[in-house]
Simulated scan of single mutants.
Amino acid sequence: MLDEFITDISSFPVRLRNEVQHLNSEQLNIPYRPGGWTIRQLVHHCADSHMNSLMRFKLALTEDQPVIKPYFEDRWAELPDSKMEIEPALQILEGLHARWTTLLKSLTAEQLKKVFVHPEHGTEISLEENIALYAWHCNHHLAHVVSLKPKKE
């Protein structure tokens, strides 16, 4: 199962690009649900979120139970760089996921058990759990984009 999760993470940038590369600016500005982010904001959110996740992995691998820094995803989605063209975010995802996948594939059973602490909940999250969470995150947001296809055609 872990290998499948890593494959989902590894393949996400290509799968996302395939879904959004032919969308025009108007289509990128369609909210994926009423009152939700636009597809454009969602692509930038994935770059932001996945950058944070990679940093959390590195912290957990190099420190003893580090407390991570949460951030306001909703506020980040309103910043100007989340409303610009999506190509820079796609490029970030491609490079980031290449590095992240290399790291994930190298983890030992002992390293997979390493944890970071999320201060909002006071919970320890193992790297193994976080891999599953981010495989879900990739597929969840990709499904939002795919679900809009009938509305755009």
Rank of each mutant, 00 (worst) to 15 (best):
12 F>Q: 02
12 F>T: 02
14 V>L: 11
14 V>D: 12
16 L>V: 04
17 R>W: 06
17 R>S: 08
18 N>L: 09
20 V>W: 11
20 V>Y: 10
20 V>I: 14
21 Q>L: 04
22 H>P: 00
22 H>V: 00
23 L>H: 09
24 N>P: 00
24 N>K: 12
25 S>Q: 14
25 S>E: 15
26 E>H: 11
27 Q>V: 03
28 L>R: 04
29 N>M: 09
33 R>H: 09
33 R>D: 00
35 G>T: 08
35 G>K: 10
35 G>F: 08
35 G>R: 08
37 W>C: 06
37 W>T: 08
38 T>E: 03
39 I>Y: 09
39 I>E: 06
40 R>E: 11
40 R>D: 02
41 Q>R: 13
45 H>P: 03
48 D>Y: 08
49 S>G: 07
49 S>L: 06
49 S>H: 03
50 H>W: 02
51 M>N: 11
52 N>P: 00
52 N>R: 13
52 N>D: 14
52 N>K: 13
52 N>H: 15
52 N>Q: 11
53 S>I: 01
53 S>F: 01
55 M>H: 08
55 M>P: 00
56 R>I: 07
57 F>I: 07
57 F>K: 07
58 K>W: 05
59 L>Q: 14
61 L>I: 04
61 L>C: 04
62 T>G: 02
65 Q>C: 06
66 P>T: 07
68 I>M: 14
70 P>R: 12
71 Y>H: 09
72 F>E: 15
72 F>A: 15
72 F>V: 10
74 D>G: 02
75 R>P: 00
75 R>C: 01
76 W>P: 00
77 A>N: 09
78 E>I: 07
78 E>H: 06
78 E>M: 15
79 L>A: 12
79 L>T: 14
80 P>K: 13
81 D>I: 12
81 D>A: 06
83 K>F: 00
84 M>S: 15
86 I>D: 05
87 E>M: 13
88 P>H: 13
88 P>T: 12
89 A>R: 10
90 L>E: 07
91 Q>K: 14
91 Q>Y: 04
92 I>M: 13
93 L>A: 07
95 G>W: 09
95 G>A: 06
95 G>Y: 09
96 L>S: 07
96 L>K: 10
97 H>A: 06
97 H>K: 10
98 A>N: 09
98 A>Q: 14
99 R>G: 02
99 R>S: 11
100 W>A: 02
100 W>G: 01
102 T>Q: 12
106 S>N: 13
108 T>Y: 04
108 T>A: 05
108 T>V: 05
109 A>I: 08
109 A>D: 13
110 E>P: 00
110 E>R: 11
111 Q>E: 15
112 L>T: 01
114 K>E: 02
118 H>E: 11
119 P>V: 04
120 E>W: 00
120 E>T: 04
120 E>K: 13
122 G>E: 07
123 T>R: 15
124 E>L: 09
126 S>E: 05
128 E>V: 05
128 E>G: 12
129 E>T: 12
130 N>M: 14
131 I>E: 07
131 I>P: 01
131 I>N: 09
132 A>C: 03
134 Y>T: 01
134 Y>R: 10
134 Y>H: 14
136 W>C: 00
138 C>L: 02
140 H>G: 03
141 H>R: 05
141 H>N: 06
141 H>Q: 05
141 H>S: 05
142 L>S: 02
143 A>Y: 01
143 A>W: 03
